[in-house]
């Protein structure tokens, strides 16, 4: 479904992403691991058109994504969430998700209010997304009043409103407490079971190992290995580059 071939991005002299190949199959839950600064977010920015690669290509369902604008890429069905949450502070939760349906709508619908009778189906879709992301009880609160864990859910809800085929999630659990993380793990699994293909960047190794059917590990912009959780776990390079350093940190 998503074919990334030899994609690279350098910032000045720094190779943030260095000739990375990845292939994500339809229905997969694909994990990307890597220490801080290893190029994970940059890779997402390349896939979603927010950055131009120095070299390489990305095909999604037969379409070349490189050279397209972010708004065109979402239209093809590639949605994303942000590592650093971004949202419109003065919109309510419901309005945030409602606005994110816009790209599928004609001018007439764009001029309608949120409670217009002709917008019933769209409003129901918003409700169902809010329910799935635990935001329903908070629908009429301003986005800026939400507790942090729910802001993360709002990121997901907004992306879902674009009706994606594939969802790129950049550290959706960061800043969440353990019970919220546990909930999120269930949510992601449920999204995948509902037919959505997911690429997940996470620092939480346990989460990725437990959740993803395929995992790639980046280090200094390069893919050092790819495989199932067990294969990745036992790879000596990974232990050295990632798990090892992580352990050291934990003890320090």
């Amino acid at each position: 479904m998503l074919e990334i071939s030899r994609i690279s991005k350098s910032f000045g002299g720094l190779m943030a992403v260095d000739s990375v190949d990845l292939s994500v199959k339809r229905g997969a839950l694909f994990g990307i691991l890597g220490p801080n600064g290893s190029g994970k977010t940059t890779l997402f920015n390349l896939l979603t058109g927010f950055l131009e690669p120095t070299a390489g290509g990305v095909r999604f369902e037969g379409n070349e994504l490189i050279g397209r604008s972010p708004e065109d890429i979402v239209r093809l069905g590639v949605a994303r969430t942000f590592q650093v949450v971004r949202f419109h502070k003065d919109s309510t939760v419901r309005e945030t998700v409602w606005a994110a349906q816009s790209m599928h709508l004609g001018l007439r619908d764009l001029f309608r209010t949120i409670d217009a009778p002709s917008q019933r189906d769209l409003a129901e879709e918003v409700d169902s997304i809010l329910e799935r992301t635990w935001l329903k009880p908070h629908a009429d609160r301003l986005a800026r009043e939400l507790p942090f864990g729910l802001v993360r859910q709002l990121e997901i809800a907004r992306a879902l409103a674009t009706r994606p085929k594939i969802l790129l999630m950049d550290e959706p659990a960061s800043g969440m407490n353990p019970s919220e993380t546990h909930q999120l793990t269930e949510d992601i699994r449920r999204l995948r079971d509902g037919g959505l293909t997911i690429v997940l960047i996470e620092h939480d190794i346990e989460m990725v190992m437990g959740l993803c059917d395929r995992i790639a590990v980046l280090n200094f912009g390069r893919k050092i290995t790819e495989g199932t959780a067990d294969e990745v776990k036992s790879n000596p390079d990974v232990i050295a580059a990632y798990l090892g350093t992580k352990k050291k940190h934990a003890h320090a």
Binding site: F50, V74, F82, R86, F87, H88, K89
Partner: peptide, 10 residues
């Protein structure tokens, strides 16, 4: 508020 968000929703 944030053009990046706007573009990310198409």
């Amino acid at each position: 508020e944030d053009e990046v968000v706007a573009r990310s929703i198409g």
